[in-house]
């Protein structure tokens, strides 16, 4: 997307949300969903539209883990590492995923296909270990099931070529 297009998008998103109370988080969600990430260009544009400082916007973007500052892969894999999932072997699944993809949590594979993230609780604590792939939660995830889920997600991703991020 060119800079002009991004500027146009930011303007329209801000216009849509301007009437809401304290709209910055809502605006950033919209932009993160549509662009996949929020970089310094977008921060500057949002600050300009809302007439606040870039620091104010940057501070909010960096506080929340959902807002990415660089593009994510087509497949977003989030593995739960909170207590309930640890109790049934979540760390083993994380270890396995790191080995298979050759990246640490928080990183994207070199081919840009999968972003591996950790998450603390998906609310699936009676059916752990839990994982979330492109917004869909999976339970009782072990090493084998992880491979199945990802294969299915990559197929779906190729077929639909939908934009990454949480469903709105």
């Amino acid at each position: 997307m060119s800079r002009v297009d991004v500027a146009e998008l930011v303007r329209s998103v801000v216009e849509n949300r301007r009437h809401e109370r304290g709209p910055l988080l809502v605006i950033l969600h919209d932009l993160n969903d549509q662009l996949g990430y929020i970089d310094s260009t977008v921060v500057e544009l949002v600050a300009g539209e809302l007439n606040v400082s870039r620091a104010d916007v940057h501070g909010v973007v960096t506080f929340y883990t959902d807002f990415r500052t660089e593009p994510a892969a087509g497949v977003s894999l989030k593995l739960c590492r909170a207590e309930a999932c640890k109790a049934v072997g979540a760390e083993r699944v994380v270890e396995h995923a790191q080995q298979v993809f050759g990246v640490r949590v928080g990183e994207t594979t070199p081919d840009g296909s999968v972003t591996l993230d950790q998450v603390f609780c998906l609310g699936n604590c009676a059916l752990g270990p839990a994982a979330q792939v492109n917004g869909k939660t999976h339970g009782r995830v072990d090493e084998n099931r992880l491979v199945e889920i990802l294969a299915s997600a990559e197929t779906t991703e190729r077929a639909s070529a939908t934009s990454p991020g949480e469903p709105s």
């Binding site: 049934v88 072997g89 083993r92 699944v93 270990p129 999976h138 339970g139 009782r140 995830v141 072990d142 084998n144 099931r145 199945e148 889920i149 299915s152 997600a153 197929t155 779906t156």
Partner: peptide, 17 residues
Amino acid sequence: DDPTTTSGNGSGPSGVL
């Protein structure tokens, strides 16, 4: 044995959404 493999109630995504 791996406690996580004892459950057999996940059918896995079949691609049918």
